[in-house]
Design a protein around this nucleic acid. Structure first.
Lengths: 199, 199, 199, 199
DNA sequence: CATGAATGAGCGTTCATTCAT
DNA sequence: CATGAATGAACGCTCATTCAT
């Protein structure tokens, strides 16, 4: 997080792998996976295409690496969620933390959001899907009615898409995030109450 | 054109244009725009690639044609919405009709949803965006607070994504659509009440 | 065989497929399959690489096409041989015809001879093997002793390799071919007598 | 094993050079020279590609090293043959020893046999050719007629190719080798008699 | 209406090789 | 002895597009 005293730890060499990932994510998020060529990534780093292949076996692996690194917190969150009681408070806490996690890895999630067709055919498609199902299971009550299930899914979705869809709305990002979080929390809360409503 | 009594729109012969669009939409929705090649489309129709160019100037034009044809009802809906008073009933009716329109052109919207990165760079990107802003304007009160704006956007989004995200949930499609519609209507209603809440 | 009056039947266009095969065979025979690139073939024909792909789906298919076209006579010979009685005369006739067939498609067989490692991994590897086994079956007596089997195989092999191995020997090609044929016939004859020798 | 008294040929450490050659030969024989990459060789030895370059200047040098080491006995045989009288007994002895030498370095000769196109462009191409001409000179009578020359070449060829072509024939390897040797000896004997036949 | 033939640009990938450490 | 990092050249292949017929 940048809190160490030695800010120049990574000088010129040895950080190439990291730099590839950074540039790749930037371009993937900006232009999509298919329209981003390895030539483009290499040029921006001022190395040859072949250099990329020293660090990653395929184009897809660059993406897999990014995905694994950046979604670790969400994996952890799911793990944590599974071990908590399914109370309203837990669910609200999960939503709060999820919102934060998405925000921390915003470019990746923008990418996932905007390249679903592509992602579906890649190995991260499966990984992503299983994470989503994990999230779903810890905020949806198994015996909730269909409408309440939709509310929960809508909550997740609102968080996923919210930031990118609202890019052209005035107001500062952090405020927007809080508004989105509020709506998502509302939806989950309503869904939770709904399940308790019917005796 | 558009709703006229002219029954000759697609004659016996010369329906190739239509067939191209049908196959293209099917493949675009299934595999994405970039991963669908004109060769593939041509092969499925058992014509040559060159034949496609007789009917459409570019690959993109196939998509533009599809988009224009299939989103006409939504354009009409927006037009209609603009001329109504901004009452709760109007908004609810708009949501209801929108849900139906999305359902009628499901493959196209699945495509739009899953190929956003691609669509953004295409001419339909702008068209789509302007339609979305149109929808937004007729269901969002200009002076609503941020949270209520999010609710409205979330409502639209829930409808867009709902069907595809819920593909692996049991329950029949029409039932799901109604549940989605209910949540969307709820959100819009809450947003509407919110605006009136503060005097 | 070329006896029509119109010698200019194939003018400039429309014979590209044939020209590709001709050039490819020439280069494959000269440099080997792997060391011959599609770029090289294309350049020699003054077309682009992509043009090759209009006529053949893959590099391998160019070779398959050549093989199928040029080994047809041998396939026919095997077919014929199967229906003959397994007399000495038949075997000698087969050897005679085989020698001629090899000579007619000399560049291809030089290629097969010199690129066995490559051919083995290609689809024509199997085809070639099955043709060879076919030949073997019609000149080897199933109950011949091992030495006589070797003689037959050696006869086939001598014909295959003979021409290329003897390239640096003086004497005119047709004379060489006859000498090779004589040795091969001898071997098959000895093998045939051998089988009759033991009662 | 060469029979020399020097037991330090391969010490405990520092046998990497040897191991590279072993693995390389195995792969070259199995897949061909071009299709075997240095990466593959290095991976199998669990060293880096760069390590190979410590021991050999180029890929080709690995092959040259193998060739020189493994064909030494044949060089010696030719040397010996040159100093003998050109009697039938000498020729038969040469064939016998040659058969043994081929058998001892079978993988290399399988490689040479199956990668002729490649070998021709490499420096060992020339070396091999000169060895072959050497062999030829000591078993062919310079004034033999063409047919008898073919017989001698066929004899050599039968030994070269025999083992690999007969891989799918039942019977144990040593027995096969003896049968091949018998046919080769026969051919050389016939050729020898032939030269004496004409007064 | 449609095809046959071709193009130019680009792609992801692999290879033998180099060299500072 | 050996590695880590990189390069330049090439490869097989695919794509959207063009145009004379």
């Amino acid at each position: 997080m940048g809190g160490t005293m030695d800010g120049t730890k990574q000088r010129r060499r040895g950080n190439t792998r990291q730099r590839i990932q950074d540039v790749a994510l930037e371009l993937f998020a900006e232009q999509g996976y298919e329209k981003t060529s390895l030539r483009e990534i290499a040029e921006r780093l001022d190395v040859t295409k072949a250099a990329l292949y020293y660090h990653f076996k395929t184009k897809e692996e660059i993406l897999v690496g990014l995905f694994e690194d950046l979604t670790k917190p969400i994996e952890d969150l799911i793990e944590w969620g599974r071990q908590q009681p399914h109370t309203l408070e837990t669910k609200q806490e999960i939503v709060r933390r999820y919102s934060q996690a998405l925000s921390d890895a915003a470019p990746l999630f923008r990418f996932m959001q905007e390249n679903q067709a592509t992602v579906r055919e890649l190995s991260i498609g499966e990984m992503f899907k299983s994470r989503m199902l994990g999230m779903r299971d810890i905020i949806i009550d198994p015996d909730a009615d269909l409408t309440d299930q939709v509310r929960c899914i809508s909550a997740l979705f609102t968080m996923h898409a919210g930031m990118f869809v609202m890019q052209d709305i005035e107001a500062d990002p952090e405020e927007k995030r809080r508004a989105i979080l509020e709506v998502a929390t509302d939806l989950v809360t309503q869904a939770h109450m709904g399940s308790r409503r019917t005796p």
